[in-house]
Each structure stands twice: as C-alpha cells, then as structure tokens.
Design a protein around this nucleic acid. Structure first.
Length: 405
DNA sequence: TCTCCACAGGAAATTGGGGGTT
DNA sequence: AACCCCCAATTTCCTGTGGAGA
C-alpha cells in the first residue's frame, strides 16, 4: 500500500503561490497607480533624478508589489534599452528599523556588506553619501514600512535634498520611494519632509470585491491543479468576506489558502463554499486568541475575572462585580490595582476586540443604567490562553473571591 | 411628565517611565 | 548623578444618560 505521502495533492499544484511572500509579476488592478509610479520614475530615463514618491494605503493593497513591479520594469529598461540610464535600486524593509540611523546603517550594509559601528548619526549619513558618490548616477531607494521610524524622519529629508545641499556629487541622483500603511503618520510628518516627499504621492484605495475576485482567480490558476478543484462559489465568497473586512488581498488569499487546506486535510477533492466559511471562522478564532495572548497584564486580569464568573455561571456580570473580582486577583499576583474608571475602558476594549460581549441594561430608578459583560468566545479558549500565562499562575479561575478593599 | 438611580464616559490633572542634557 | 522634558497611561472629578416608577 502506498504511504499517504506518496500521492500528489489532489488539490494543490503550487501552494507557494498563495503564501504571504509570493510577489505577483503583474497587478492589473493597480494599473492607474503603476502609471503614476511610472511617471514619477520617468525623469530618471532622461538623465535627471527620479521624483520622490510616497505610496500610502492600508495593508495588503499591493503597495510593495507595485513598487517592485515598476522598479524591475525600470531596471530592465536600464539594462537592455537605454544607454543613458545608469540605475541602482535598493529595497529596504524598515520593519525592524526604528530610527533614521538604523535605516542608514541598513542601506550601507546592503551596499557594502559592512555594518557601521561606533559612528554618530551624522557620520553614518556621511558614510552613506560617500557610497552614493561611489556608485553614482541614478539611485532609487525604496523604504518599505517607513512609518516604523516614527518621528525620526531625518533620512526622509536628507536624501531628497542631498543634491541641493551638496551632500553628493553633481552626477549623483538619489531619490526615495516611501511606502507606508499608516495614514496618520503621513499627516504628522514635518513640513519640510512633506515638501520633499510629496513630489508625487500615490494612494492605494482598498480593493473592492470584484478586484479581489480577479486577484484570486489569477492566483488560483497557478495554485491549483485545475479549475474544477474550486467550487463556483469559493472565490466570490472569499473575496466578499475580505472586501467586507479589510479589503486586503492578503486577507482574501488567506481565506482561499485556508479553505483549500481544510479541503485537502479532509481528503476532499474540491474546495467548497462551506470550506471557505469554516476557514473564515477559524481565522477569526485564531485572530481573537492571538489577541488574547497579546493583552497587557491588566487586560489579562480583566479577562480572568470575567472568565471566573463565566465558569460559575454568573455572567453576564456587571462592571462593578467584575471589578471586585479583578481587584482580588490583582492583589494576589501583586499587580497594580487600577481604578474602576480604567477597568471600564479595559472591558470596553475587550468588547471591541470581540473577546467579550457587552450588553446595555437600564432598570430605571431601581438600578439605573449599566452594562454587563460576558465572554464573547468559548470559555475553554479563554481558560487555556490564561492558564498559559505564567504571571497568572497564582490565580485560580474556579474560585470567586471579591475584594472590597 | 418628573424624578432619580447608578453607572458611563468626557475632560482635566496627575503620575511615572524613558530619553536626552549638563 | 541630577535634572528636565515629553509622552502615554491612569486617576480624579464630574456631567450625562435612559427608563421605571411615582
């Protein structure tokens, strides 16, 4: 008998196509945005510097992919079709970089393979511009997730102004492509950065369900053995779910991948609508559980107090009741005891995250107006998350002790 | 319609930690 | 080390709220 690993998957042809870091080579849904990028890069082909561009929009809207597509287009042009364009492109992911210095360091590292140490910020900048001079000509720097550097935006005005300030030689044309999914951050930039970075700014609006559907179709063609694997409703439902939520391609693809995996693990030959629904529920559950793990200690305590009440069937419970139990628990683990006002916010936050459910009550002149809370997730899920948090070891969720002190 | 309950939640004041400066 | 400054979290203070019951 052949082992269960022997057979080919009856569903996937190339699962990789649905993974997070797969980059498509064309983005028909972003034609307009790519055109704008093209016109920003156009001056470079005429021997001037490329314009500085700022790409913004929510996560999963193809900002990074669009930049990569257009940049490789330009690289191809530089190598094969143009003898005036001498181009160097650098792609920097600022995901773990929180200061301008770290970004500069990363740039120099990518150019030379050397980490700088013991340098002041301004020396590091000098070092970077030296490298620019060495390379010469057109240099396009893509700074992905640039909002990570927060308010330390030196790099964002130094590079666009490098030529006019004389940091680099006459024949060096550095420019920046900034990518951010934090719209607030963009508005808080200092005016001088806005001036230089706003040569061109390209907004990536969330995809609608139709666009998401097209994206999924294209991926599905490659990812699955043949089109019969997918039920006719699968892609419409997956894209509708994603469109209603974040409108992100990442999310839509996530649903599709999860649904296909579910089908695969059940030994089904086709992916159906119900697989997608199940996938959506599972992903949501994982998201909420992840959210529970990531709470602060105070959030965990608020959750623990409510969970204890849930276990003794005392939910939904009033804020005041939960607060009493919370105080007791906080004392037990030697933690801070927050004021009730703050606890209300904590509980409200948990409600917003879907971890709890809040309902409004009003008993008029008897009891007045108040809220009650209960768990919005399965009790076991909360118990299992909480019992894996070492800070909470001293707490027994099965005893209800209220403190009035 | 008026009153009144008991908490909700806004606003202002306070605290306390992290970073930079001398 | 001593100091200040900035920021966010939290506390303190207080007004707002909707409906049951008179």
């Amino acid at each position: 008998m052949p082992s269960k690993y022997a057979g080919q998957s009856t569903i996937f042809d190339d699962e990789e196509v649905l993974s997070e870091d797969w980059t498509p080579d064309k983005l028909p849904e972003r034609e307009d945005e790519i055109k704008q990028l093209e016109s920003a890069f156009a001056p470079a082909t005429r021997g001037a510097g490329a314009d500085n561009v700022f790409l913004y929009g929510k996560a999963g809207q193809g900002k990074t992919a669009a930049a990569q597509v257009e940049l490789s287009e330009l690289e191809y042009h530089a190598e094969n079709e143009s003898d005036t364009l001498d181009l160097t492109t650098l792609f920097i992911s600022c995901e773990d970089l929180t200061t301008s210095f770290q970004v500069v360091n990363q740039i120099v590292y990518q150019l030379t393979g050397e980490r700088m140490n013991g340098l002041s910020t301004s020396e590091a900048f000098d070092r970077m511009f030296e490298e620019f001079n060495r390379i010469g000509n057109t240099i396009i720097l893509v700074l992905d997730e640039i909002d990570n550097i927060g308010t330390d935006d030196k790099i964002l005005y130094s590079i666009p102004r490098a030529r006019s300030k004389g940091y680099v030689d006459e024949d060096v044309y550095p420019s920046v492509v900034g990518i951010s999914n934090n719209l607030k951050w963009r508005d808080n930039l200092s005016p001088k950065v806005k001036d230089s970075l706003y040569d061109e700014s390209v907004h990536f609006a969330p995809y609608d369900a139709t666009q998401l559907g097209e994206i999924l179709e294209r991926r599905a063609e490659r990812a699955f053995i043949d089109e019969d694997v997918l039920g006719s409703d699968v892609i419409p439902i997956a894209s509708a779910f994603a469109a209603q939520d974040k409108g992100s391609a990442r999310q839509a693809i996530g649903y599709l991948r999860k649904a296909a995996k579910l089908a695969s693990s059940k030994g089904d030959d086709t992916v159906t609508e119900s697989h997608v629904r199940e996938a959506e529920a599972l992903i949501e559950k994982e998201r909420v559980e992840e959210g529970m793990r990531g709470l602060t200690t105070q959030g965990h305590l608020a959750l623990a107090a409510t969970t204890a009440l849930e276990l003794s069937n005392d939910t939904p419970a009033r804020t005041k009741i939960i607060y009493g139990i919370y105080k007791n628990m906080a004392n037990k683990i030697d933690g801070n005891v927050l004021a009730m006002r703050r606890m209300r916010d904590q509980l409200h936050d948990l409600d917003m995250q879907g971890i709890m459910i809040r309902s409004e009550y009003n008993d008029g002149s008897q009891g007045g107006h108040y809220y009650k809370y209960e768990l919005g997730i399965e009790t076991e899920a909360a118990v299992s998350v909480l019992s894996n948090i070492s800070r909470l070891d001293e707490i027994n969720l099965n005893t209800i002790e209220s403190s009035h002190r």
